[in-house]
Design a protein around this nucleic acid. Sequence first.
DNA 1: CTTGTAAATCGTAGCGCTATTATCTGTTGC
DNA 2: GCAACAGATAATAGCGCTACGATTTACAAG
Lengths: 350, 350
Amino acid sequence: MDSGNSGGARPPRTRRKMQRVTMSDVAKAAAVSPSTVSLFLRKPSAVSERIASRVQRSIDELGYVPNYVAGGLAAAGSKVVSVIVPSLRNAFFSETVAELERLLARGGLQTLVGHTEYSLDQEEALVRAALSWAPAAVVLTGCRHNAATRKLLLRSNTPVVEMWELGGQVIDQAVGFSHEQVGRHIARRFIDQGYESAAFIGARLDEDFRAAQRSEGFLAEMQEAGITARLVENSAPASTSNGVRLFEEVCMNPVRAIACSNDTLALGVLFEAQRRDLSIPTELALAGFGDLDFAAQMVPPLTTVRPAADKIARKVAECILRPQAETDRQNSPFPTEHDTGFTLVPRASG
Amino acid sequence: MDSGNSGGARPPRTRRKMQRVTMSDVAKAAAVSPSTVSLFLRKPSAVSERIASRVQRSIDELGYVPNYVAGGLAAAGSKVVSVIVPSLRNAFFSETVAELERLLARGGLQTLVGHTEYSLDQEEALVRAALSWAPAAVVLTGCRHNAATRKLLLRSNTPVVEMWELGGQVIDQAVGFSHEQVGRHIARRFIDQGYESAAFIGARLDEDFRAAQRSEGFLAEMQEAGITARLVENSAPASTSNGVRLFEEVCMNPVRAIACSNDTLALGVLFEAQRRDLSIPTELALAGFGDLDFAAQMVPPLTTVRPAADKIARKVAECILRPQAETDRQNSPFPTEHDTGFTLVPRASG
DNA sequence: CTTGTAAATCGTAGCGCTATTATCTGTTGC
DNA sequence: GCAACAGATAATAGCGCTACGATTTACAAG
């Protein structure tokens, strides 16, 4: 219509594009080909120094910012790692995410986070979204997932790391420890101290499988030692105020020792005990899980279990980064577990 | 070699490709064109019901997972929002990120997090990386950034939201409140109670500009009221154990009231005061910032300031989501500030 | 039956980059 | 001086998808 369209000339497509400096712009400015710019960016040592400096100057002058989206498409795989945790409000996970992000950034990987609020369906949705980014790896928390999630992951052929828990059916790689053992160790300590009644305080045990396992380990060990121990739980989050509430419930039927599913809950117990003039550990022994920063500062200091959080993050990062390094070796086809262990930290509270 | 290559047949390029189900595969299986599948995915209402169900069935059967990387490239802009915070260890930010992620997910946006460890150079690096994803928006913490960051953002033409602080030179949109005012309000409370000496305890004030502003507001208000107030700080993180350390330093030269740059620090002060048998608030008044969950549970409960954290997250999400909704209206070219305010929460500690 | 019009579907050209092959430089050895 | 060779640079073909216009279909009106 508007052009001499006899041969095959088409009206020029109006294509919206990001108005941004592209690699070709840089190439033009540096008077080299786009491939050379690309090569320089990916492997600077492969281009001559003369060209390198010219390209670098053009990049700086134009303020070129590479487009990972295009890069990811061309290279069949993006440089993101998707990390999915139950909750960022939980100090364990926010710390792990933070550390992981730091470590992965060194390897040139970006971290995409998602949180499931302890819902397996939500997890499935997040995994689906994550896979849409053709991620370099997917990191999940725990080893319980619904069937769809598992299938999605398996057929995607993406490296998967499950962290903070061991003992399930591993998809690809798992880094963590046994929560049941944690519960047993705490129980063992109470038993050794000769306490004759105990309770386990837990929040959201129906969704937080790891906390539930700790409670089970605790109760089992207690029972095996012939000590009465009961479980007091609710479905509110594991907060200090919920610790207060749960402890109030325990008090209706007092016990000699309390194990909490984590330190935050224990802090609530401590405060409420102070309010009730209950002396710790003389009248009530208290233990937590996590060894969060405040645990050692509490009055009295809190007996707790320290998971090797940093070790977990490091190991997970390693699982993701290593395969990249060894290009010629294919991923080991066998699921692997890495036990990072934990430490009982005995302090004055119980 | 392997084909009848006389005309112009080239040896087939061995192109690694993600071995994954593509949209064309789905189209083929559903006997429609790829564009129809794409249309169905983006705007299901635009295709007939008959076709919709056929396409959906093929998607399910093949286990098709869309490739956002390709989509982002074609659509000139990805569906990620990059959120950059100083630290995920800080409960404010981990909560904000969590809430933001939740809200943005509803709008079909994914959250990419980065944390700067309170370094402006690190922030620049993260912004650079973020922009490489052609993000739908970038969310930053605070309104102090180095010149390069600012320039990068400005020329990128990406929506930018700065959160948790007001008062700087806004790039695009800002959501937060005045930290100086927070400091002044706490001071005002101490003044009204008639305390005659005070200290402000702060961690990392050289990097945490917001905490620094709170301290400045506090000290200024005190000085204007003619009350001696000093600043005690160090460069360790704002943890409970650091609160203990900083309080020990204050004790070498006791004061009647202490304001902490946040609740976590105040918790340390409480514990150390208990250890020293110092009664709160009779001998020492204490105030914090944040109103974290444990603040109300402390013995005595902590006087603190509650920032409208959820409101911040909601407003930020709104700033990002709204422009998408109103397609025909272009972004307002004027930087905007939204003040979310804060609340002084008076409790027994001071 | 034709025609007109709206709705549904399709065809195609890139988005900006990377991987791969092809081409072009210089060097060295005889 | 020229072949042989390595090292540096360039040309090219997509990656999988979306936007846009073009085409087809469905259906009402004439």
